[in-house]
Write a protein that binds this DNA or RNA. Structure first.
Length: 818
RNA sequence: GAGGGAAUGUCGGAGUGGUCAAACGAGUUAGGUUUAGGACCUAAUGGCUAUUGCCUACGGGGGUUCGAAUCCUCCUUCCCUCACCA
């Protein structure tokens, strides 16, 4: 029985790796680079959880593999330190967010090092470091310069008791998460980044990305491009309050239903709503708005459609009829113009609204308008004057043309994507480098005065701690040098994570955001690994930032990470989400303590496909522990000598397979391949030293510590971690033997089919393109006594002109009889 | 409502036109080893049969094909994301 002291082995090799600095990356233009990145973490006080370990292990395996293959690998890490939890902890127990964060980071680093990760610690980045967020501020100033950062009024969830703005998820069910006070909607002046300027390119460049389909679909949805037209609706003058506008543009994708517009609905949240409200209706509208306030944004979806008459009328440009304008709870204020033309006969929402308020329902497309449903399909027009009888698809065009002639409409493209509001009324974020001056107005801070550091002495309690800090707020105007006040809002933390991958290229640089040459060498990220939950936030923002920085000329590429991989979720044994409150959290530290780091790593990647996730299994990890132990036993008992032919084939097959599998992140398959390989070695009893060393190398990316130990045990100097990845002896591969015999294989396959179909005269044989010359049609034809035609095909293109092509695989032809 | 994904033994899951369903792990049962337990080794683990074998099975129906878990189509169930986007 072999007794192994994993703890000792692990710390021994971790120490050596660190001493010899074998994972530090240096720019070297002669070597091909490979940049592996896992999404950096928010350093929470609870340390790394099993999902982190899963994520890091995958990146680490890829990184180690590439390193052994001879690439110049960059595998950095850092901390997304700014953010709410640190601030909340500060409010709760009086510690400073910086203290909290630094303590958490220390703990994280210890745990990450414990996992044996190949991070280059020289390049660590911490977003709470002024040396980092200085460049957040710099990018902001550049955006301001280019007109991509601007201020506007926007509504926020406001807790009157905490005197603070709440994120949507903190304001669920309309109450403040912390103090249970009713949340109010408040309008504040806030900073926005014009991501919408890049909406089209963000959409277009999806085709450049090797990303999961799902993520691309989610982003497409999120950006939500839709083509339609904008129609001007005049507001009836006689009933309008004095200051109102004369017309209001409306976005629609259904101009064909214009004759069926019988009323209008403006968003109840619209900032210009009061321009439409007449004196008589003021009270009614106010009553309605008050009622709405008590509903949080989250519940809006399930809400019954409700509204109130504003007192104003619009003129339908097609019929010239006056139609009432309602304020409604179901219209989105900042999509389109915040007002919709309602076609109750052909839109379900308008239909419900019309039923409720007894408004006219005018059918303009032939079809069944039922008692409880609008008719939303296509059909021929009716009740539409000269357009009657036209197919509605055609009418869309024709009515648009007709309106265009009257200068009442234009074609427009609308996006669901909004500009990115980055103002947060919070302390623990990047200060926005803006000064308010009584004489000069809104003035940006000079670049040379960056960074604007967060003040250390602040009081936490109610409201934004920066607002109460007069000493910090008071400053000189950069323009006129008179007394002025700082912006007290800080930036959304997603700003920090939108470009951190660039900073890793040159993390210490104090003169510029990073050295252009270094960024050019390392970027873009070759493999980016992280959770799917970032599909619509971080992954869009960082694409936006990359495109902006490219336009600024500091980088020469427009996509940060052409290849993206999402790891799955790990749940508890019952399949439930792990959470502290449920008490079902699996601590990676405990597991590593109990079974060893390499066992933990091996188990994580062996139990399921990495993109699928799995349920934790204590029995399962014990199985992995047995495997690791078995390897030590093999090395204890193995005789070093010669390989059998079978062994030689096996090891070469494994080298080939595992290389391909790591490349494609199919780690689970590798774990199986490794089991089979070591099982065979154990059965053989005697193998060559070369085979033994190769199998250790194959195992090394997964289990780096024990392989170092066993590598040294075989009498090797130096680290296996930087040893060369074994090469495949192609003559020893299994496939070769089958390839040689492709002809007889085809014959063997056709024969039984022909027995069933003796009347067929001709056989089509489909093989992979590279196999075509190995096939001898004459020989096959002779053997089966039929005419034979051979086609090259592969799974993507079907080559048969008669569309009868069948798929072929290497060594497995497709056959078609005629 | 829109979009995406999934359904295979007792369980987790491989397999994505033929070689070949159930690899690999876990569980269970029997035997060996052991003072006992654990660990380890061997075998069995859809049905029938003493065995060669035969049959049944990849959520359900239909289809394409000489051949379908795999491709197409409809349906059912489940998961995820966004969601009153005009």
């Amino acid at each position: 029985m072999v007794e192994v002291n994993f703890k000792k082995i692990e710390s021994k090799w971790q120490k050596k790796w660190e001493e010899e600095k074998i994972f530090e990356a240096k720019e070297d233009s002669k070597k091909e680079k490979y940049y592996v990145l896992e999404m950096f973490a928010y350093p929470s006080g609870t340390g790394i959880h099993i999902g982190h370990a899963f994520n890091y292990t995958m990146g680490d395996i890829s990184s180690r593999f590439k390193l052994m293959q001879g690439f110049n690998v960059l595998h950095p890490t850092g901390f997304d330190s700014l953010g709410l939890p640190a601030e909340n902890a500060a409010i709760k127990d009086g510690s400073h967010p910086e203290e909290y964060t630094n303590k958490a980071i220390k703990n994280f680093i210890k745990q990450q090092k414990g996992l044996g990760l190949t991070y280059d610690w020289q390049r660590m980045v911490n977003t709470a470091d002024p040396g980092y967020y200085k460049w957040d501020q710099w990018i902001f100033l550049k955006m301001l310069e280019k007109g991509l950062a601007y201020q506007k009024e926007a509504v926020v969830n406001w807790c009157p008791s905490c005197k603070t703005v709440l994120a949507n998820e903190q304001a669920q069910s309309g109450k403040c998460e912390r103090c249970d006070t009713k949340v109010e909607i408040k309008s504040l002046k806030q900073w926005f980044l014009k991501i919408t300027d890049y909406a089209d390119e963000l959409l277009r460049d999806h085709k450049k990305l090797n990303w999961p389909e799902k993520t691309i679909a989610m982003q497409k949805n999120w950006i939500g491009k839709s083509h339609g037209i904008e129609i001007d609706f005049e507001i009836a003058p006689n009933k309008l309050p004095a200051e109102g506008d004369k017309s209001w543009p409306i976005f629609t994708t259904r101009p064909d239903t214009l004759f069926g517009v019988t009323f209008m609905v403006v968003s109840a949240q619209h900032l210009r709503l009061n321009e439409l409200v007449t004196e008589e209706q003021e009270k009614e509208v106010a009553k309605f708005l008050k009622k709405l306030k008590s509903v949080s944004e989250k519940d809006l979806g399930d809400l019954e459609k409700e509204g109130v008459f504003t007192g104003s009328y619009a003129i339908n440009p097609a019929t010239n009829k006056e139609i009432p304008i309602y304020a409604g709870n179901f219209v989105v204020a900042d999509y389109g113009s915040g007002m919709v033309m309602a076609v109750p006969a052909h839109d379900q929402r308008d239909f419900e609204f019309a039923k409720k308020y007894k408004l006219e329902i005018k059918q303009v497309i032939k079809g069944d308008v039922a008692k409880d449903r609008a008719y939303t399909n296509s059909g021929k027009l009716m009740n539409s004057e000269s357009f009657n009888g036209m197919e509605n698809q055609e009418a869309k065009e024709k009515i648009t043309e007709w309106l265009k002639e009257k200068r009442k409409a234009k074609k427009v493209i609308n996006y669901k994507l909004r500009d990115w509001g980055i103002s947060r009324q919070r302390y623990w974020g990047t200060p926005i480098p803006i000064v308010y001056c009584d004489s000069c107005g809104v003035v940006p801070v000079h670049e040379k005065d960056l960074p604007i550091k967060l003040p250390k002495n602040v009081k936490f309690g109610k409201g934004n701690p920066l607002e109460g800090n007069e000493k910090w707020i008071k400053t000189k105007c950069p323009k006129c040098k008179k007394e002025a006040r700082r912006e007290t809002d800080t930036m959304d933390t997603f700003v920090n994570s939108s470009w951190y991958f660039l900073r890793y290229c040159d993390p210490q640089n104090n003169r510029e955001i990073f050295d252009k040459k270094k960024a050019k060498y390392w970027m873009p990220v070759d493999l980016y690994i992280g959770g799917a939950e970032h599909a619509c936030m971080h992954l869009i923002y960082s694409r936006f930032y990359t495109k902006f920085l490219a336009d600024l000329g500091v980088i020469n590429f427009r996509e940060p990470a052409p290849r993206l991989f999402h790891q799955g979720m790990i749940n508890d044994e019952k399949g439930e989400k792990m959470s502290k409150s449920k008490g079902n959290v699996v601590e990676p530290l405990e597991t590593m303590e109990k079974y060893g780091v390499d066992t933990t790593r091996y188990f994580l990647i062996s139990v399921a496909s990495p993109d699928k996730g799995f349920n934790w299994s204590e029995k399962g990890i014990q199985g992995s522990a047995r495997f690791i132990k078995k390897i030590f036993e093999i090395f204890e008992n193995i005789k070093i000598g010669k390989d059998t032919l079978g062994m030689a084939v096996r090891i070469n097959q494994s080298i080939k397979n595992i290389g391909e599998q790591i490349e494609n992140l199919q780690f689970r398959k590798s774990s199986i391949e490794l089991r089979e390989l070591f099982d065979m070695i154990a059965d053989e009893g005697e193998v060559s030293k070369e085979t033994l060393e190769s199998s250790l190398k194959l195992l090394n990316p997964f289990c780096p510590h024990i392989t170092e130990e066993l590598w040294a045990g075989l009498g090797n100097e130096g680290f296996i971690s930087v040893a060369e990845w074994p090469t495949v002896d192609k003559s020893m591969l299994k496939d070769n033997s089958t390839e040689k015999d492709l002809n007889s294989k085809i014959i063997a396959q056709i024969k039984p089919i022909l027995e069933k179909f003796q009347d067929k005269k001709k056989a089509y044989v489909y093989v992979m393109p590279f196999e075509k010359e190995k096939v001898d049609p004459a020989a096959i034809s002779e053997a089966i006594e039929k005419e034979v035609e051979v086609w090259a095909t592969n799974e993507k293109e079907k080559v048969d002109p008669e569309n009868k092509a069948k798929k072929a695989r290497p060594g497995m032809p497709g056959i078609y009889l005629e």
